[in-house]
Amino acid sequence: MDSQKKYIQLYHSIADRIKKGDFSVGDKLPTEQDFAQEYGFSRQTVRQALSKLEADKIIYKIQGSGSFISDSVLSIKRTMHIAVITTYISTYIFPSILRGIETVATSAGYSILLKATNNSIAKEHSILENISVHDVDGVIVEGTKTALPNPNLSFYRSLADSNVPLVFVNGYYPELLETKRHNILYVVTDDYQGSYDLTSDLIRKGHTSIGGIFKSDDIQGIRRFSGYIDALVNNDIPVDDNHILWFNTETKFGIQQQLSNSCLPKECTAIVCYNDEITLQALESINYQNQTVTALRSFDGTISSQQCSLNFFSLPHPKEALGLLATKKLIHLINGEDEKSAILPWEDN
C-alpha cells in the first residue's frame, strides 16, 4: 500500500473512532508517535492523516500542546449529504438515473454531492481522496472500468470500515464483495440474462451467424458477452472470434473503423451491440457499406425501432427505478438497517 493510501486509511480509522465516541469534544488525541506505534505507520503518514483531519475541521492543533477534538464533531454523526459518483452526468441514461437518486434523497432530507469520473481511474482516485467521513453519510457510485484491476479499492474499503455505506450502480468491483462487508452493496441490471435473451430472440428468428460488439473494460460488457456466448452454445451455433469486436473506454468512438476492417458485417446477418451508443455507430457503418446485416439488438432503450432501417430492438434500461432503489438501500444502510444487493430485470425483458 503506498503512502497516500496509508494516510487516507488512517484518516478514516481515526475519524471513525471519533464518530463512535471514543473521543469527545476537547479531548486531546494521542501523539504522532503513539499513533505510529499503534497502527504501524510512519510518523510522516500519521502527520498527513492528522493534517487532513485538521483541514476537515474534525480536530484542531495547538502549537506545543498537540491535537484536540473540534466541536464540529457534534454534527459528524449525520451530515445529511450523500456523495454520488458516476462515470458521466449529463449524457445518455445518466440524467434519468440521477433523477431517481435525487427523488429519494431529497424526500429523505439529503442533499447530493455529485461527481463524475469520466471513467478515468485517475479522476476516481482524486475524487475519493477528497471524500471524508465528515462530508457524507453514504456513497452511491458507478465503478470505473470495473472489469480491470483497480488501484482505488483501498479508498472504498476505508470508507466502508468507517461506517460509510457504499451502493454501486450499473457496475461494481467483485473484489470488494469478497470480504462480505455488510455495508457494500450493488444495484445492477441483469446484463447476462438480457444478452442471452436478445441473442436467443435472433436465433428464433432464423439467424445463425450473429456477431457481437462488446466493451472489454467494464463488468457489464463482460456479462453481456457471456450471455451472448451461452445463447450461441446452447443452440449449437459455433462461436467465431472473427464475428466479435471488442472496444474500451478509449476506443468507443472508433466502432465504424473497426467494422470497416472486420469481416463481421460481411458474414453476419445480425449483431448484438453493447448499448445504443455503439448501435448508432454500427448502423451508420452498415448503412454506408450496404452489408448483409439485417437485424440489430441492443441495450438501454434510447433508440426507437422507427429510427433504425433494420429489424431492431433495444432493451429499455430501468434507469430511474435503478436510481430510486439504490438510494433507498443506501439510506436504509445509513440508518443501520440490513439490506441486500439487487439485480433488476430489463423493463421489457
Rank of each mutant, 00 (worst) to 15 (best):
T31E: 09
E32I: 09
E32T: 10
Q33G: 06
Q33V: 07
Q33C: 03
D34G: 05
F35I: 05
F35G: 02
F35S: 04
A36N: 08
Q37E: 13
Q37K: 13
Q37V: 14
E38A: 13
E38Q: 14
G40C: 05
G40A: 03
F41Y: 15
R43C: 05
R43A: 07
Q44P: 02
Q44G: 10
T45D: 06
T45S: 07
R47C: 08
Q48F: 09
A49F: 00
A49Y: 02
L50C: 02
S51T: 10
K52H: 09
L53C: 07
E54V: 04
A55E: 12
D56H: 08
K57Q: 14
I59Y: 13
I59V: 15
I62Q: 13
Q63W: 13
Q63G: 14
G64W: 01
G64R: 05
S65E: 15
S65V: 10
I69E: 00
I69M: 02
S70N: 12
D71I: 07
D71T: 10
S72Y: 13
V73F: 05
V73W: 03
S75W: 12
R78W: 05
R78N: 13
M80D: 14
M80C: 11
M80T: 10
H81A: 13
I82Y: 01
A83K: 00
A83G: 15
A83M: 11
A83S: 15
I85H: 00
T87L: 11
Y88S: 14
Y88K: 15
I89M: 12
F94T: 07
F94N: 05
P95N: 03
S96Q: 12
I97G: 00
L98Y: 01
L98M: 11
R99L: 10
E102P: 01
T103I: 06
A105G: 08
A105D: 08
A105P: 02
T106W: 06
T106S: 13
S107C: 03
A108D: 10
A108F: 12
A108E: 14
G109E: 13
S111M: 12
I112C: 09
A116R: 08
T117N: 03
N118I: 01
N118Y: 09
N118S: 12
N119M: 07
N119A: 11
S120N: 08
K123W: 01
H125F: 07
S126E: 15
I127T: 06
L128T: 05
E129V: 03
I131H: 02
S132H: 01
V133E: 04
H134Q: 15
H134E: 14
D135T: 06
V136I: 15
V136E: 04
G138M: 09
G138T: 09
V139S: 01
I140R: 00
E142I: 10
G143L: 06
G143F: 03
K145F: 00
L148E: 07
P149D: 12
P149G: 05
N150C: 07
P151N: 05
P151M: 03
L153M: 11
R157D: 11
R157E: 13
S158E: 05
A160G: 07
D161T: 10
D161S: 13
D161C: 08
S162T: 15
S162W: 03
N163V: 06
V164Y: 03
P165D: 09
V167D: 00
F168T: 06
V169E: 02
V169Q: 03
V169A: 09
Y172T: 06
Y173W: 06
Y173C: 08
E175N: 10
E175H: 08
E175L: 10
L177T: 11
L177F: 15
L177I: 12
L177G: 07
